[in-house]
Deep mutational scan, measured.
Amino acid sequence: MQIFVKTLTGKTITLEVEPSDTIENVKAKIQDKEGIPPDQQRLIFAGKQLEDGRTLSDYNIQKESTLHLVLR
């Protein structure tokens, strides 16, 4: 499924993921596309910060959901 990741600069990254993918996994995909190390990434969905060990389905993230990427 496709999800979108919006950065603070207003750029939107499109990722191909599975509901069973972990947040860690998603961060690795963002690193592949954008070169941002996962340890600098914070992903936010519905106002919650997403934890590395959880999966997209844990957070009920469905196709075409938009996550927000904050760098630390």
Rank of each mutant, 00 (worst) to 15 (best):
M1I: 04
M1W: 12
M1G: 06
M1K: 03
M1T: 11
Q2K: 13
I3A: 01
F4T: 03
F4S: 09
F4K: 08
F4Y: 15
F4Q: 05
F4R: 05
V5P: 00
V5L: 10
K6P: 01
T7H: 09
L8A: 15
L8N: 15
L8D: 05
L8K: 15
L8V: 15
L8H: 13
T9N: 14
T9I: 08
T9Q: 11
G10C: 03
G10I: 14
G10T: 09
G10Y: 05
K11F: 09
K11V: 12
T12P: 12
T12G: 08
I13M: 05
I13N: 02
I13K: 01
T14L: 07
T14C: 02
T14P: 12
T14Y: 14
T14R: 12
L15D: 00
L15M: 14
L15V: 03
L15S: 00
L15C: 02
E16H: 15
E16Q: 07
V17Q: 12
V17Y: 06
V17C: 02
V17L: 11
E18H: 11
E18T: 06
P19A: 13
P19Y: 09
P19W: 06
S20A: 15
S20K: 06
S20C: 02
S20Q: 08
S20Y: 14
D21T: 15
T22N: 05
T22P: 13
E24K: 12
E24P: 07
N25V: 11
V26F: 03
V26L: 09
K27N: 02
A28G: 05
A28Q: 13
K29C: 03
K29L: 05
K29P: 00
K29Q: 12
K29F: 05
K29T: 03
I30S: 01
I30L: 11
Q31Y: 13
Q31D: 12
Q31F: 11
Q31E: 08
K33S: 07
K33Q: 05
K33W: 06
E34S: 15
E34V: 06
E34Y: 14
G35T: 14
G35R: 14
G35S: 13
I36A: 09
I36N: 10
P37G: 05
P37M: 11
P37A: 13
P37H: 06
P38I: 14
P38C: 02
P38Y: 11
P38F: 08
D39W: 09
Q40C: 02
Q40F: 06
Q40S: 11
Q41G: 06
Q41L: 06
R42F: 12
R42L: 09
R42M: 11
R42S: 15
R42C: 03
R42I: 15
L43P: 01
I44H: 12
I44D: 05
I44G: 13
F45V: 11
F45C: 02
F45S: 13
A46S: 07
A46N: 05
G47A: 04
G47R: 11
G47V: 03
K48P: 01
K48C: 02
K48T: 12
K48W: 13
K48D: 14
K48G: 06
Q49G: 10
Q49K: 07
Q49V: 15
L50W: 01
L50C: 02
L50G: 01
L50V: 12
E51S: 06
E51N: 05
E51G: 10
E51C: 03
E51A: 13
D52P: 09
D52T: 04
G53T: 09
G53H: 13
G53Q: 09
G53Y: 14
G53E: 07
R54G: 07
T55Y: 15
T55Q: 10
L56I: 15
L56K: 00
L56C: 02
L56T: 03
L56Y: 01
L56G: 00
D58M: 08
Y59K: 01
Y59P: 00
Y59A: 15
Y59F: 11
N60Q: 05
I61F: 02
Q62V: 05
Q62T: 12
K63G: 15
K63Q: 13
K63V: 08
K63T: 14
K63F: 12
E64M: 06
E64Q: 04
E64R: 14
E64G: 09
T66Q: 05
T66Y: 10
T66L: 15
H68P: 01
H68M: 12
L69H: 01
L69K: 00
V70R: 04
L71K: 13
L71M: 12
L71W: 04
R72L: 09
R72A: 04
